[in-house]
Each structure stands twice: as structure tokens, then as C-alpha cells.
Design a protein around this nucleic acid. Structure first.
Lengths: 232, 232
DNA sequence: TTCCCAGAAAATTTCAAAATTTTTGAAAAT
DNA sequence: ATTTTCAAAAATTTTGAAATTTTCTGGGAA
């Protein structure tokens, strides 16, 4: 692997990518010395980058024992999903209320790109490259959905949560394979463009519930992430 | 200032405390060399701690220009408040649904402590120490309110947001002075113990709206943080 | 065979100094 | 008087190595 002297932010980007795509497997030790050689820099630069990745949850740090890619953890996947559902429901509802024509247009565009990729995925088996393409398009779709919510902290929090979710999920063989995704994404975008906040919340829950601990058993009764909104 | 060789985590705690209490004023430069002397450690240890504080938003980092305590920014305070309202409304609603007797008891306890401190605050002018005491009690109250929401990511996200909010707000002379706080906290706890999620959401909004950009002008119509839930 | 301890090896953390970049301040030119 | 230029000073970033801690390995005792 020949790399021509990457800068510190580039090293960060590269390791981030390797973590969310599980090219660095979950739980694997990340030794400073090894990475120092790979990137041809000092141990301190590596340490700095790893601390930043740790603060975002992709890496865990233990005092005097160094760094490891975060191991798989079903409970963590459950709670990440729960938080994602809540953030996306709240963000989408706010976008529906505040978003203008430009938002609708961007949402339609990102959904068009995503559904194009997804229709090809169902025909051919996915190579590593098309999987990356799909993953990027899906993130862009979800982010566009929230882009008019007028809450920068919600958006950055969603992004961090999505990355961690992806790191947990990507090694499961069914990641990206679900044909249901097509109709689920369609339901989300349809509800959003109809400005039907409640239907959009339900669609978001239906899209993600399979990653909850119980697979969303009590789903139709409580479509909100924290089991809350149905009480109003 | 005589410190007997603090460890790295202790240095982190100390700087964190100084930042959220604005003992390090907003916008002030934080020079490695100066801090290295204060804490009697190497520049690298300081750098590590400052990067961590930067990832939590209390410090800003500019390449080749070092670190600064985050400056005051009214827009930032607005968006921090908006996000805090959303997280607390969602978390409280979930706690109301899931919380058992133990939760009620802890909530009553933390509110009792808080209101005791607040009743004294209205009589005497607050010294630096009672302000710290109040601040700690208020955080504990809000955290207890969310403690039964069964969403660890919501709680840690709330904590980070609260710290940043406090850093922005603490220098404003009215911080901690509001007599309204007493009745507002009472309204929150009453609604929560009555298991009235909607009333609790309204009370949370009413408690925080003065920190929004417009002071909550359209408040009574839209008690939800992102202006959303009233559409359902 | 299993358990435990000591010594060796490896990895992490801290340190101090060199190298790079930014900031400062004064002199020269417009 | 204002702007520009350049050199000195100050601060940040990187580096390589020392010091500390953990992990590994092998031998001896139960």
C-alpha cells in the first residue's frame, strides 16, 4: 500500500473510512507502532487521530492498553437505532414544517439517486464498490431529509450516530441487501412531500425497526423511537 | 496555585470545570506553553486534553493557530437551547412512560435539593460557591428527569449539550438569578409525577424559551423544540 | 498437567528539543 | 501619514527517544 505522505486530516479520513466500512474489523487492536509505519508519521500523530475517533465512538480507548476498533455489541446497535429513529423523526417533522420548495427538490433528487442504485442492487450481487456507493447515497438521502430542520446540533448528532450504526451493522451479511428498503424509502419520501408528519414518523420507524432488540414487535402501536409520541 | 502533579484525566477535569464556569473566559487563547507550566507536564499532554475538549465543543482548534476557549455566540446559544429542549422533551416523555416508582422518588429528591438551594438564592446574593452548588443541583435535576428514558445516547448527548449551554450562558449576569426558575422547575416536576407528558413538554419549553433567539415569541402556540409536535 | 512467578519482550505514555509556522514590531518606501 | 517589507520573537507541531506499564514466554512447584 503506497501512500505519499498523508497529512493529519487525511489520516483521520482514511482511518474513519476504514472503521465505518469495517475494513478494520470490530474489536481489532490498533497499535500505534503499526499505524505509524503504515502512514509514515510519528506515534503522536496517530495517537491524536485515534483519540478523536474515540470521542466519536468508533474506537475505544483503555488507559495504558491502547486503542481498539469498537467491538460488535447487539445492545449498542439497539440503542443506536433507538436514538437514530428519534433524531430522524424529530428532524423530519421539523423539515416538513420549515422546508421550502428547494428542500423538496433536493429530497426528490437524493431519493432518485438512491432508488436508482437500489434497483440495480436487487438485480446484481453487490461488489464492495457498489456497496460503498449505496451507503453514501443512503446517508445523503437521510441527511437531506433533515436538512431543513434548522437545528445544526441535531444534524451533527445524527451524522455521528449514523456512522456508529454503520460500523455496527456493515458486517452483517444482509446489510444493503433488503429489497424492502426500496419501498420503505419511497414511503418516507412520499409522506415528507405530502407534508404528512405523522405518516413520515411511522415510515421512519418501519424502516429502522428491524434493528431494534425485539425487531420492533410492539411496532404498530408505538411508532415513536422512545415509545412516547403516541401518548399525546 | 500549588498542584501536586495532576494526572492526565485530572487535568482534563480541571480544565473542563474552568471552561464551563468561564473561569477561562470565552474566546481566550489557551497556550500550550502556559498550561504546561501551570500543570507541570509536557506540551503533548496538554495538546491531548485540549483536543478532547475541542471534540466536545468547549474549545475551538485552528490548524497552526492553537486552541481558544469557545467565544460567546448568541446564535450558538439559540441552537443549543433548541436542541436541549428537544432532547429534554423527548427524554422526559419517555421517562414518564417507562419510569417506575424509583424514578419518581429520585426525581422528587433531586427537585427537593434544587428548590432548597433556589429558595436561598432569592434571599442572599450568590457567591461563586453557591452558584456552583446551584449549577450542580440543576444538572442533577434535569438528568434525573431523563434517567428513565432508556436511551443512553440521548442522555450523553444531553449532557454534552448542557455543558456547552452553560459555558455560553454563565457569564450573563442573570444566570442563576431568575426567581421564575423556582416555579418553572416545580411545573416540570409536577407534570412529570402526574404522568402528563404534554404538560411536561410545555413546562420544559416555558423553562428554556428565554434563551431562544426571539425569547420564545411564538411560544404558546408551538411548545415543541423544533416547532413540530403540535402538527400531529 | 496445571498453576504461578520471574524475566524478557513489546507496547504505551511522557518528555524535551528541533523544525515549522505565525505573529510582532520596526525600518523603509510610497 | 499610511502602507509594505523584512527580520526577530513567540507559539505550534513534529520528532525520536526515555521511562513506564502491560503482555508474553518459559521454567519450576504443586
Amino acid at each position: 500500500m503506497l501512500k505519499s505522505k498523508l497529512s493529519t486530516p487525511q489520516i483521520y479520513d482514511d482511518l474513519h473510512m476504514q472503521l465505518v466500512t469495517a475494513q478494520i474489523p470490530q474489536g481489532q487492536k490498533m497499535r500505534s507502532e503499526r499505524l505509524r509505519e503504515d502512514y509514515d508519521c510519528s506515534a503522536n500523530t496517530i495517537r491524536e487521530v485515534l483519540f478523536r475517533l474515540a470521542s466519536e465512538g468508533l474506537v475505544i480507548f483503555e488507559d495504558q492498553r491502547g486503542f481498539r476498533a469498537r467491538p460488535t455489541d447487539p445492545e449498542r446497535l439497539h440503542y443506536l437505532t433507538k436514538f437514530r429513529i428519534m433524531l430522524e423523526q424529530e428532524g423530519a417533522t421539523a423539515s416538513i414544517q420549515h422546508g421550502a420548495l428547494e428542500w423538496e427538490a433536493q429530497l426528490a433528487a437524493s431519493h432518485h439517486k438512491l432508488s436508482h442504485i437500489e434497483s440495480k442492487l436487487s438485480e446484481t450481487s453487490l461488489s464492495g464498490n457498489t456497496l460503498k456507493l449505496w451507503s453514501l447515497a443512503e446517508l445523503e438521502f437521510h441527511d437531506t431529509l433533515l436538512s431543513a430542520c434548522d437545528s445544526p446540533f441535531l444534524r451533527s448528532s445524527y451524522r455521528r450516530t449514523y456512522d456508529q450504526f454503520r460500523q455496527q451493522k456493515i458486517m452483517q451479511p444482509e446489510y444493503g441487501y433488503h429489497p424492502e428498503n426500496i419501498v420503505e424509502h419511497q414511503a418516507i419520501v412520499t409522506a415528507a412531500l405530502k407534508r404528512d408528519a405523522h405518516a413520515c414518523r411511522v415510515a421512519i420507524y418501519e424502516h429502522m425497526k428491524r434493528n431494534l432488540r425485539d425487531g420492533g414487535a410492539s411496532g404498530t402501536l408505538h411508532p415513536d423511537a422512545l415509545g412516547a409520541a403516541s401518548t399525546g
